[in-house]
């Protein structure tokens, strides 16, 4: 199951996949966001307002397939890379995937199409590459694989670019432009500058740049920043001062809090 393996079950996929008639009509986004987390950049990214407004920041996104035009905007905004756009094209299905690694594949290249467990299921042709902070790679597979394919891998191990820094998006010509904190739009360059200015704890970076205080509550940025601090201070991550995680666990309406009637218990 998803919680254990990280792989969604078929029933979950069916729930978020557009109906067959909608797929026939043209490109459409599929959002495989199965966990309630405080994150909403997708809802704000859609130029057609097809991703319905969140009532609670912890809501899971709901997409109105009829409004969605498959423009790819949300693909690039999802910190969890949970969104793709799919489309039928003749005998083929096009799967448009977010891609944050270097190198980028080339148009016309044959790659392995992978299922959600990361296993190769067929060959695929790269039909389009839109390079960006998050690149979008379109691959063509057989029609019947539209619900199966969720990734790709190179046929041969590509040459790794010189400076490889783990999970940072490296498809930028200038790695310092790579976004570390999506909630507050901070680049790796911004973070390195602050660290070299002497702000060498997560708490200082939080206060001054608000890292970790946006909708993702640090899930995307803090691990990268800890890596940067560890490298700069030459200290293992486990020895860095932990930041405070503050209550509440999930956001609560003030009116609901006001109605809470329990005896005062603790100090």
């Amino acid at each position: 199951m998803l919680e254990r393996s990280g792989i969604p079950e078929q029933a979950q996929i069916d729930c978020v996949f557009p109906a067959e008639e909608r797929l026939e009509k043209g490109p459409v986004a599929v959002i495989e966001c199965f966990e309630k987390i405080p994150c909403n950049p997708c809802a704000q990214s859609c130029p057609k307002s097809a991703i319905l407004p969140f009532v609670d920041i912890n809501d899971r996104p709901v997409i109105d397939d009829e409004l969605c035009v498959g423009c790819n905007a949300c693909i690039k905004k999802c910190p969890g890379l949970a969104i793709m756009v799919v489309e039928y094209s003749g005998e083929k299905a096009l799967i448009k995937l977010p891609h944050e690694f270097k190198p980028l594949p080339e148009k016309g290249q044959i790659v392995n199409a992978l299922n959600r467990a990361g296993e190769p299921v067929s060959d695929a042709e790269v039909v389009r590459v839109i390079a960006g902070k998050v690149s979008v790679v379109s691959i063509a597979v057989d029609r019947h694989l539209i619900k199966t394919v969720r990734g790709f891998s190179f046929k041969e191990k590509p040459e790794i670019p010189e400076k490889n820094m783990g999970n940072l998006e490296l498809n930028n010509t200038n790695e310092l432009d790579g976004i570390v904190c999506r909630c507050n739009d901070l680049t790796l360059g911004d973070i390195r500058k602050m660290i070299s200015d002497g702000y060498t704890t997560i708490d200082e970076l939080k206060q001054l740049a608000r890292v970790g205080m946006g909708p993702c509550q640090g899930r995307s940025c803090i691990p990268i920043i800890l890596g940067e601090l560890s490298r700069y201070l030459e200290t293992p991550i486990k020895d860095l001062l932990p930041t405070n995680f503050r209550p509440v666990v999930t956001s609560v309406k003030l009116s609901d809090l006001a109605e809470h009637d329990e005896e005062r218990t603790s100090v």
């Binding site: 920041i57 509440v248 609560v252 309406k253 003030l254 009116s255 609901d256 809090l257 006001a258 329990e262």
Partner: peptide
């Protein structure tokens, strides 16, 4: 949070719709 919410929603009722984050 409970005491604060009571105080603030008494005086500025519309803020009851807002969610506390931290």
């Amino acid at each position: 949070p409970v005491e604060m919410a009571r105080t603030v929603t008494n005086l500025l009722p519309k803020l009851g719709q807002l969610r506390m984050l931290r």
